[in-house]
């Protein structure tokens, strides 16, 4: 009896302590906000939704041989270098029992192999794992820059990067299809799927050719681009809104918690979108390659 009351007494006090702890965290954050406000000062006092130009256009930092180097370019090259370093470090001295970076890299490669390559292309999809792995991790990391504090800009929200990737994947699946089936047979298999009555054949041939050759690369690039643009704009609007709240009066110093908390929650949603867009880009590339390798009979 005494022991149960003792445990109950010890169990209750931490619950009561929670409120002061939360208050202390709030007080410290508000203090930090005041401190930053006093030192740096926050931006505009009235809210204006940021335009596309403000959010997505960068002035060139320096020029190399006629090419303007902007902030996204630098981020993209650093990410690529980081990715190469990571995989070289992970697989330069492979051990039978993986540990450290090799463990992480192997988990990633195995995910691509089992869930994307073999699931969509079939057994010979295993030879496409390097290509798909490169696409997946490159897209994922470049998307991830969207929510990485300090960078906070998704590289793939500049149209040129998804377009380049989509063209790469378009060239790859067309070349694979032509090499596997022959030029005329490849286009015949695209345009004339089996089991279609003769009259509709002609109409379907045009639609199929159009959708394979033109719509596929466009949707592939626009999907990634538009998702990243939308996410970045929502985060931008909310963070600017919280900054405006702080720059306002004393009520705003408390009220900024609403847009700020919402933007933190949306960053979690953004992480989901980032991973899913990388996954979808990779899996659609794999599906297109699989379609070029195995035409419908």
């Amino acid at each position: 009896m005494t022991t149960t009351t003792a445990t109950m007494e010890t169990a209750v006090p931490p619950k009561k302590k929670k409120l002061p702890r939360i208050l202390a965290v709030v007080a410290i954050s508000v203090g930090i906000v005041y401190l930053v406000d006093a030192i740096v000062g926050f931006g505009p006092k009235t809210f204006e939704a940021p335009t596309v130009g403000e959010l997505f256009e960068f002035k060139p930092i320096f020029t190399v041989g006629g090419f303007d180097v902007t902030f996204p370019t630098i981020v993209m090259f650093s990410v690529t270098a980081l990715l190469i370093l990571f995989f070289v470090r992970a697989f330069s001295k492979p051990t039978l029992v993986p540990k450290g970076t090799q463990n992480v890299a192997e988990a990633g490669v195995e995910f691509i192999r089992e869930n994307i390559a073999i699931a969509t292309i079939g057994p010979e999809g295993a030879s496409w794992v390097p290509f798909l792995t490169a696409i997946f991790f490159w897209v994922f990391l470049n998307n991830f820059m969207s929510i990485l504090p300090g960078v906070q800009f998704p590289v793939t929200s500049r149209m040129s990067y998804p377009v380049t990737l989509a063209i790469t994947s378009w060239v790859v699946f067309n070349v694979v299809g032509i090499r596997k089936q022959g030029f005329f047979k490849y286009f015949k298999n695209i345009m004339l799927p089996p089991g279609v009555p003769p009259g509709i054949n002609v109409l379907l041939a045009i639609i199929e050719l159009f959708s394979t050759v033109i719509v596929r690369p466009i949707t592939l690039s626009v999907r990634l681009f538009a998702n990243m643009v939308a996410g970045h704009m929502i985060l931008g609007v909310l963070f600017i809104a919280s900054s405006v709240f702080i720059a306002g009066n004393a009520l705003g110093h408390v009220g900024f918690i609403a847009p700020f908390g919402l933007s933190i929650a949306l960053m979690a949603l953004e992480l989901f979108v980032i991973a899913m867009q990388a996954f979808i880009f990779t899996i659609l590339t794999a599906v297109y390659i699989g379609g070029a390798l195995h035409p419908e009979h």
Binding site: A119, V222, F225, A226, V229, F279, I280, L284
Partner: peptide
């Protein structure tokens, strides 16, 4: 589950592209 999930995401991506065309057209 594995096969269904894969195909679900492919279908989702194809349907989502149409909405994103509208989003791009907005700009």
């Amino acid at each position: 589950r594995g096969q269904v999930t894969t195909m679900m995401y492919i279908g989702f991506a194809l349907a989502e592209a149409l909405a994103l065309f509208g989003f791009v057209l907005f700009f």
